[in-house]
């Protein structure tokens, strides 16, 4: 089994309870149910075989080398759902912002690009991924680069870069607080 992130700090022996494999298998089976559209025994067995292969190959993709319990996974999913609602509202705000900028007659006077660098406290790759995507989707900022926990962010005007990162980082850290600690 290859490690998807390719980092060195992962110990050789892979430990983990079966929970993440069960979750991955359930996700694969649901996807199979939706996309195959046939429900006889032959196709269900085929789906089960493919799901087992995928689970064996990349079952620990979402939380490499960390034990998570079922209750913890449920908590993370629930917090993720709450976070997604907040994120969708931010996406709508961001689009209205871009729309106003694009329609303004003098674009070059309205925007003041700057590049901001900050260091994050998040440790897992999944949390960093969620934070980077959230920064890209919120008004006025785009993630350029993540290197060893240092985020390089492009802000389209200087007011957009202020204070938003800390707030968002706290929200993301709250979602993954079980597996971060």
């Amino acid at each position: 089994m290859r490690d998807p992130s390719g980092r060195e700090d992962i110990p050789m022996e892979r430990q983990g309870t079966g929970t993440q494999f069960v979750l991955m298998f359930a996700m694969c089976m649901v996807t199979w149910f939706v996309f195959s559209g046939r429900y006889d025994v032959f196709h269900l067995v085929l789906g089960m075989i493919s799901s087992l292969i995928v689970t064996w190959a990349s079952g620990d993709l979402l939380s490499p080398n960390r034990k998570i319990s079922m209750r913890c996974a449920m908590t993370i999913s629930w917090r993720m759902a709450v976070y997604l609602i907040w994120l969708v509202i931010e996406v709508v705000k961001a689009n209205i912002h871009v729309f106003k900028l694009a329609l303004s007659p003098n674009v070059r006077d309205r925007i003041e690009p700057s590049i901001v660098t900050f260091k994050t406290v998040l440790k897992t790759d999944l949390a960093k991924f969620v934070l980077a995507n959230s920064i890209t989707l919120t008004p006025g900022t785009v993630t350029i680069k993540i290197e060893d926990g240092v985020f390089v962010v492009h802000a389209i005007d200087t007011s957009a870069a202020e204070g938003l990162q800390e707030q968002m980082e706290r929200r993301v850290a709250h979602i993954f607080s079980e597996i971060e600690s």
């Binding site: 871009v98 729309f99 989707l137 785009v142 492009h154 389209i156």
Partner: peptide, 10 residues
């Protein structure tokens, strides 16, 4: 970079 803002969000 500002084009990427428009592309990614919109």
């Amino acid at each position: 970079y500002s084009r990427v803002h428009a592309a990614g969000k919109g």
